[in-house]
Amino acid sequence: MTATLPNRATVSSRDRIQALLKHPAANIALPIIGILLFLTIWEVLARIGLIALPSPIQVLTDERSNYLIMNPFFYNSDLDQGLFLQTMASLKRVAIGYGAAAIVGIAVGILVGNSPVIDKMFDPLFQFLRMVAPLAWVPIALAALRQNEPAALFVIFITSIWPILINTAVGVREIPQDYKNVAKVLRISNQKYFFKVLIPSALPYIFTGLRIAIGLAWLAIIAAEIVMSGVAGIGFFIWDAYQQNYVTEIIVAVVYIGAVGLVLDRLVLFIQKRIAPGQ
């Protein structure tokens, strides 16, 4: 009897944690507590001088950064504008580069997935190129294209194409033999096979690729802009602020980058759920 008592106590505390996690407010309250905890530690560490960064309160109160936070939309010149506008300039590049990567990646992926010969031929090359870091492409892009803007687009394109291409190829290759057999027995036309069998079947894989790629594309644009001076965009903004030692500005920009990356990821997930619900 007595032996069961402590046991029951631990069970009940575990139950309480379970109940807490299931509470609707937990989804909002717990992350907020986490963030506040993080900011507090940062504040303390900055105050006692353990890190040389400005503390969160300094970021909010500093004149330059405060102006940036309060005025995301001001425009003086291409290189001197609000952070929202800077972000939009970067996003525009991502949209073009990533869009091109999606189109080319899916098309080539289908080709590769459908043809074992092409697959064998190019797979090592794809695997090799996939491993090249986004920054490494920058000098090559600049050397090849000689202009900042197209080079930036190329870096995004080349970074984000691989996951799309490889995942699409896997998706097409992994179309269940059953579906292929049905198509063969019914002698379904190629066009119908493509739209009614191939695409729906590979869609979950394609979206997995797209989701990985959007993260990489956003990563790549910041890196590319930092290196390519003189283009409007949040990456260059950070580089510029660093050169002038405005650390609080960098921190505000970093918050923007993180937030946008998160939003982009959720956006693709949302689209995936709408178009290809879990099969």
Binding site: P176, D178, Y179, N181, V182, K184, V185, L186, R187, K196, V197, P200, S201, Q279
Partner: peptide, 20 residues
């Protein structure tokens, strides 16, 4: 020499297209 609808197959795992 090749599959065709005059020899229709009912597969063991049904082989229905799940998106339809």
């Amino acid at each position: 020499t090749r599959p065709g609808p005059e020899r229709m197959v009912v597969f063991q795992n049904y082989s229905l297209l799940p998106w339809m």
